[in-house]
Design a protein around this nucleic acid. Structure first.
Length: 212
DNA sequence: CGTCGGATTTACT
DNA sequence: GTAAATCCGACGA
């Protein structure tokens, strides 16, 4: 039997389960190809490093929720909150392949973005999902990959608009340095599917430190 | 309050 | 490679 993603684990243990996972919101379905783990108070690069603030308090809340923050005033990036209630960690969604609802995503992203770039990069992925700051703390329902089970779960929670299920098959994955941060950048906490065109990093930074 | 920097993206030169 | 866009929240006064 397929298992559900367990967000109560620390983000660096959840991250590998997220690669290849299927995320649905409204009419948009995205297959995650790149995530970064942020390890809360122990991680100088994490928003949660200095403890709960109005911005990052969601990361300290219950696992299995969405943490949305504003990046450079322009973008909205989404994290999947991990670790038990009271402990902060999370996985930043950095890249994904739009496999359903391309028309919706293209309306949000504009006509010039290439297919592979529709959800490439945290800001673009947030835009593809239509995230706003008011989506912060939205529950994320983790369901089994078996279709009948997922359907049953969805019928039981009609108000939930965010769903995730584990990768339908084996996924090749590597990890390496995180991107766009200045503190603790050497920690190998970025996870991605090698060779996937929807991974956001430039080629020069796509250096795998470890094959998982 | 005011200031400052940012888990970014895009379009330039 | 460099710069502009653009705004929220962290923090100090």
């Amino acid at each position: 039997m397929a298992t559900m993603i367990d967000f109560s684990e620390p983000a660096d243990r959840v991250a590998p389960q997220l690669l290849g996972a299927i995320l649905r919101r409204g009419g948009v379905t995205i297959r995650l190809t790149e995530v970064e783990a942020y390890l809360g108070t122990a991680d100088p690069a994490s928003h949660a490093h200095k403890g709960p603030t109005p911005r990052c308090r969601t990361m300290f809340g219950a696992p299995g929720h969405l943490y949305v923050y504003a990046s450079y005033g322009i973008h909205r990036a989404g994290n999947l909150v991990c670790s038990p209630d009271g402990t902060a960690s999370g996985c930043l969604m950095r890249g994904g392949e739009v496999i359903e609802g391309i028309d919706i995503v293209r309306a949000r992203r504009g006509p010039t973005a290439p297919d592979a770039g529709l959800a490439r990069g945290p800001g673009n992925l947030g835009a593809a999902l239509g995230l706003t700051l008011s989506d912060d703390a939205t529950p994320v329902h983790s369901v089994s990959g078996r279709d009948p089970e997922a359907e049953r779960q969805r019928e039981a929670h009609p108000d939930t608009d965010l769903w995730i299920q584990e990768a339908p098959g084996p996924v090749e994955m590597v990890r390496g340095r995180r991107i766009g941060i200045s503190k603790n950048a050497d920690a190998p906490l970025r996870y991605w599917i090698p060779g996937d065109p929807t991974v956001s990093s430039p080629r020069s930074l796509r250096v795998a430190l470890e094959v998982l």
